[in-house]
Design a protein around this nucleic acid. Sequence first.
RNA 1: UAGGGCGUGGCCAAGUGGUAAGGCAUCAGUUUUUGGUACUGACAUUCGGGGGUUCGAAUCCCUCCGCCCUAG
Length: 377
Amino acid sequence: MAKKVYVGLSGGVDSSVTAALLVEQGYDVTGVYMKNWSKDLPGFDCPWKQDYQDAKRVAVQLGIPFKLYDFETEYRAKVVDYMVAEYQAGRTPNPDVMCNQEVKFKLFLDTALADGADFIATGHYARVGRDLGREVGSPDGAIARDPHYSSRATLMTAANAEKDQTYFLYRVTEEALSRSLMPIGEFASKAEVRAKAAELGLSTAAKKDSQGICFVGKVGIKDFLLHELGQQPHGRIVDQNRATVGEHDGAIFYTIGQRHGLSVGGGLPYYVVGKDMAKNEVSVTTDLQDTRLWRNQLTITDLHWINQAPELGKTYQARTRYRAPLVECQIYLEDGPIDTNLARATLDLTDEIRAITPGQSAVLYDGNRVVGGGIVV
RNA sequence: UAGGGCGUGGCCAAGUGGUAAGGCAUCAGUUUUUGGUACUGACAUUCGGGGGUUCGAAUCCCUCCGCCCUAG
């Protein structure tokens, strides 16, 4: 009997092709639309109904069952509230990391398993490796014997390095990975994904790529925060010589490395290098070599390792922002055992990298394998 | 008030007789499942106001206005 897979159908091409591929491979596939957000905001109509229709249409085309999981309450609590609280604290959170950790690979996974699924699948550009244990995920079920978390799964980068999304997935657990399929990770390019969709006649073949979070992008994070938190106290913008060069409309709206949005002109561009939430001050610089903009060491907390903690002193590659280049690094303990979530760790980088930002994640790679990472302090 | 300097788009800033460089900001796109970065495009019929000289001025002259520095 074929293994049951619940595919998260977002209404986009990637998840559509994911479902199609699994059908081709002989799985017993069910499509699920996760309703995480449906609220309209000023000047923006949430596209969830359209996405839902697109997802359903694909399910019909593929001849698979289709379900709706309503996670709005949990998404609000785990992702949106977290995001807003982080911004209020002066940090720059990454909601998509939290969405994957809490919603897609926890809530969705658990709900699907409870529904009778053997696996879940998503349209992520990433790969799940099964090389550390018994193989799971073959359609006939012959290899995966233990129905629950039997295998040692690893998170591997996508074949298409340009589109790789493992940066958003490093907080997923090994158990969740062992129950996950990400066939899109094998594609060498987005064009091939679209070509496959077109070949199968999927209605989403030419649909434009969407944002990770529906209200960010169309509305913009600043407007969203204004909507959530209201107007913020204005404060000074101070340059590298401590001279006041302008006024900001709320320090929480700015992030390290940011250039636009300051409305301060004259000479060279200004980049944000720091925020003092107590003074409500935003520090900027026109000096691209400013030492506050470049660092070769950082501290991370809220550590999460997918399979096992990294080896101290070993050279890994690190990424501190999505799509940022990888930098070689070594990891050291700051205090406590490295494999606990309470510990902090220090990363020594071989090269200085720009705009290391509290709240963002530092993800460690060992070649193509994602080791894990933490939140920048 | 004398002596000197200055006033070019939101901000810097070229241009001193030949018909308004450039940068920043801003706006619009592109790239991007966060934020940001980067890239592309748009952006002064006009040079503090008024008058004059000239075929022609932001550039020369006169005058008014506003700044800055030095003079007790």
